[in-house]
Nucleic acid binder design. Structure first.
Lengths: 112, 112
DNA sequence: CTCTTTGCTACAGATAATGTAGCAATACGC
DNA sequence: GCGTATTGCTACATTATCTGTAGCAAAGAG
């Protein structure tokens, strides 16, 4: 296994060019990444609460995503415990929020 | 685990509740899904051209994502060949586009 | 010290992605 | 018709990633 060193060797999977948009698209295109941003939209959550919110997803991936999102500067671990969005993370969240209404309309078309 | 049959039994991974937003977040949170929407933003592309655009990603996954995105109604295979966004897909694209500028600002902060 | 919760890790088994190859169908030129 | 090149799409072994369950050390409350 190639393994992540966790600090320096951040490989840009899915983008050999390294263009910002590709890096971002790749980061957000990992399991639970978007979901985490969504679940933290209102208020910070502890790792356990976040896990519960994410349908009891495996703590392994959750922890991995959380680390990546933290390194990206979207999420931070508050001093009082609990994960929350940074200013940048909230900004990113602004673009994820509209998906809510879109999703509702979408399902009413395809599954309703 | 229940395994995908590939045609009818489309399970809603990552969302036991089936809430539209969760289903959407899960769908978009798969490898190359967001990237495909991004690459098709301008004009339709053939499967090969799309593969090239996506850094020569494996045709296996690309084909899988394409099928999922088609079933979701975001992507369609034009009669003259080539994949393009549907009206719904373009609408979804509208929410992905702002990520471009965000990504630029983001990288200029975190990477120098 | 015990009980509980925190963030986080181990690890085997299952699932998904990669990389390379190649198929049937369609269209071109001849 | 025959080659040649494209299309969308599939096979399959290797490798990467995720799941599910268990459990750790640290911090706080009693």
């Amino acid at each position: 296994m190639a393994k992540q060193t966790g600090s320096g060797d951040r490989r840009v999977r899915g983008s050999r060019t390294g263009r910002p948009i590709m890096v971002l698209l790749d980061l957000l295109g990992r399991r639970w990444a978007l979901r985490i941003l969504w679940e933290l939209r209102e208020k910070p959550l502890t790792s356990r609460a976040l896990r519960t919110a994410c349908d009891e997803a495996s703590p392994t991936v959750l922890q991995a995503r959380l680390t990546e999102l933290r390194e990206a500067g979207f999420v931070e671990l508050g001093d009082g415990g609990g994960y929350g969005l940074t200013a940048l993370g909230r900004e990113l969240g602004e673009m994820v929020m509209p998906l809510h209404r879109f999703a509702e309309r979408w399902r009413s078309k395809s599954a309703g």
